[in-house]
Design a protein around this nucleic acid. Sequence first.
DNA 1: TTCATATTTAACCATTTGGTAAAAAATAGG
DNA 2: CCTATTTTTTACCAAATGGTTAAATATGAA
Lengths: 209, 209
Amino acid sequence: MAIEGIKERIIQAAAAEFLQKGSGGARMQVIADKAGINKALLHYHFQTKQRLYETVLRQQFSKLIDSLFEQLEKETDFDTWLQSLIRKYLREIMTAPGLSRFVLWELNSGAKVLPQLFKKCLADKGHDPSFILTTINRRLQEEGLGNIDPVHFLLNLLALCIYPVIAKPILEQILGSGYFKAGDFIASREEEIFKLLKQGIYRQNEEDK
Amino acid sequence: MAIEGIKERIIQAAAAEFLQKGSGGARMQVIADKAGINKALLHYHFQTKQRLYETVLRQQFSKLIDSLFEQLEKETDFDTWLQSLIRKYLREIMTAPGLSRFVLWELNSGAKVLPQLFKKCLADKGHDPSFILTTINRRLQEEGLGNIDPVHFLLNLLALCIYPVIAKPILEQILGSGYFKAGDFIASREEEIFKLLKQGIYRQNEEDK
DNA sequence: TTCATATTTAACCATTTGGTAAAAAATAGG
DNA sequence: CCTATTTTTTACCAAATGGTTAAATATGAA
């Protein structure tokens, strides 16, 4: 088998296992089985569990960051830009809620490894962390919304998109599973977030004047 | 040692371990050490890891649900009610972000045990799950906001309060750690959420008329 | 005290875990 | 072909894990 082929297959298998079970709960044997190889070969290619873990995380972050930055940089008009951001984030999280849950979870260890890795991932791509805020701020300025705090704007955007998706199984206990059926939810959620952010923005802006 | 005393001490120790490491990553030996007892005594009092785990979860949920419901039922005027909800939720999550992260994480296993347990906890306290939505809906009606969707209102409230707190370590990489320093953050966040929800609400309401 | 019951401990066990050693295949260069 | 290097497998190990056993200690009622 081609060497790059097998390394890629191992990473895929490891991602599935790590994201579902966490770094502590993941089992090397399970990863080997999923990749269709033997456990010793895993250690031949990635030495230790820790090394494999970091490789997987780097790759997962990379994918996510690329996707989100790409959308952030689009130079469409404000409404289209905001709508696209919401749509992209919602869909990205929905197709892989495990990654978001996993990231939050690993923060619990108190170890700084994951935040550091995230920062490094940004740096590797030539992105400055402040670029996110700078971009948001610029777009708000252009729209005549210079008195809106870009930090709260970002927090609101991320929270409104991410939380309902990753907390879905619990929320279903409160709301009944009907609300999350099919594509209805994502469509209505998209609209709700857009309206909330925009209406909030404009009302706030008017008041401050 | 008094029997209830030691059981309580075990539960405290187990909570710390489970919430930090998850059900799979937690170690019975560590729990025993934290409780200052011997591992066999753990099994004497709680038989299996699974049983101890469920006991701990039930207790943690119980605490959280009590606190949140208490606030929801307060019959103050709308603004005070909403402000108190936000403040309570924010502070509750901030003092124990581990519980929220843990809950989200365990959802990843796909097992329904945690949502079921959550539902059962509500039932044990005589709360109907629909009570949350009913209450929110009533308050919105009383405020003349009958056309606001209570589901989205609840999702927005929870998301805006919970997400920024539990994602703090990652967000600090983007925002710089200054933003989260001291009580500044929680105070400004409290105000931001209130304004966003209210302004969003009223703007939406006017438009629909 | 005495006896029964509940609590606690030390020693142990079977299984699982991440990881290794060394031999066996495959691959490539001459 | 031969030889050297890389890739893969088989068999294994030491440590850690959840859990048990049986003996020891404490407790309480008669």
